[in-house]
Simulated scan of single mutants.
Amino acid sequence: MSDAAAVYDVAVVGGGPAGLSAALNLVRARRRVLLIDSNRPRNSATLVAHGFLTRDGISPLELRKLGRDEFLAYEGAEHRMTLAQRISRVDGGFHIACEMRGKASEATARTVLVATGLTETLPVIDNLRAFYGTSFHSCIECDGYDKRDQALAVIGEFPDLAERALLLSQWSDDLVVFTNGADVVTMVEEDALDARGIAVDRRTISGIVGDRDGVTGIRMTDGDVVDRVGGFVRPGWSSELHYLDDLDPDVDADGLLVDDGHGRTTIAGLYVAGESAAPGPQQLIVAAGSGARTAATINRDLVGGIRDLADAVQ
């Protein structure tokens, strides 16, 4: 169905749950939709995803494949496995320049939906990445149940660490908070955690101890090993939106796109869904709902209102 001269109604940048949900709803609204995605999700290290109704325990990559297959079954749907490099204004919409592995392509669309989500940066701790997605996770709501009643570590270098530990206490009462030397837990917070039986260790971490069977402990730089079998880490999150530099949309203090609550950004015709506008990672089903909501907004805006029609016939 690809046609280089065609103008798509919507270009959806990002093929996670938000982008796929939006693309599916838009193509069902009889819109010509281009899905631009490299299939490199933030949660690719996670073996199974939880909390998605009817798909609990599915592989995130399998969920994406099922979503793409459903989308591509409709007339007007197209998917390109590539990366958006630059989006700029042109008459009637936007020009999207893409490139991946040296192969360039371009497209023109009346509207653009940004759904590229977040990029994670883990603390610099030996062996942490080796156990990330199996023994260690980042989303407590997603994976807390599967770590229930275990001896867990809560690792992070951000001020929300104490709140995350408190949340995790719903699933386990054997928790140790590790700040990795960062001053991110106040004494008031430490006292509150202590009252819940949660210890705070402010030492710097040397590495994660474990083998093929999993994690056995957290090694500190002083040589001490604290027995743990896994836990949760608070990564740094960033939204890589360099491809929007020509448009210069408003972003918040976290670098996320500002929207009106319905997916409209400060640039007419540019929309956002999922984690590109939300503070921190979302559960997959929440991101999918965000995509469906923004898709409805885009379709209504493309149809136009009764006043637009009245103005056009005068």
Rank of each mutant, 00 (worst) to 15 (best):
G230T: 04
R228H: 06
L244C: 05
V226K: 04
V233L: 09
D246W: 12
D254V: 01
L241W: 06
R234Q: 13
D245A: 14
P235L: 13
H242I: 02
Y243W: 15
L244S: 08
P235W: 07
D250V: 03
D248Q: 15
E240H: 10
D254I: 02
V225M: 00
S238T: 13
E240I: 03
G230F: 07
R234H: 10
G231N: 02
V251L: 11
D248A: 15
S238D: 13
L247S: 00
L256R: 15
V251Y: 06
V225K: 03
V251A: 09
P249E: 03
D254Q: 14
Y243L: 15
Y243K: 13
G230R: 09
D227L: 01
D250I: 03
P249M: 04
A253D: 15
D254L: 15
G230K: 08
L256D: 03
D254H: 12
L247N: 02
P235I: 07
W237V: 12
E240P: 13
V225R: 00
D246S: 11
V226A: 01
S238W: 00
P249N: 02
W237F: 15
R234V: 15
S239G: 07
Y243E: 13
D227M: 01
H242C: 08
W237D: 04
D252P: 06
V229Q: 02
D246K: 14
D254P: 00
G255C: 01
D227Q: 10
D246C: 07
E240W: 00
V233R: 05
L247F: 01
V225T: 12
D252S: 04
V251S: 14
G255V: 06
V226Q: 00
L241C: 02
F232A: 08
S239N: 10
S239L: 02
L241H: 06
S238I: 08
A253Q: 12
S239Y: 08
H242N: 13
L244W: 03
A253S: 12
G255S: 04
E240R: 12
V226G: 01
W237H: 14
P235K: 07
V233F: 11
G236T: 10
G231P: 02
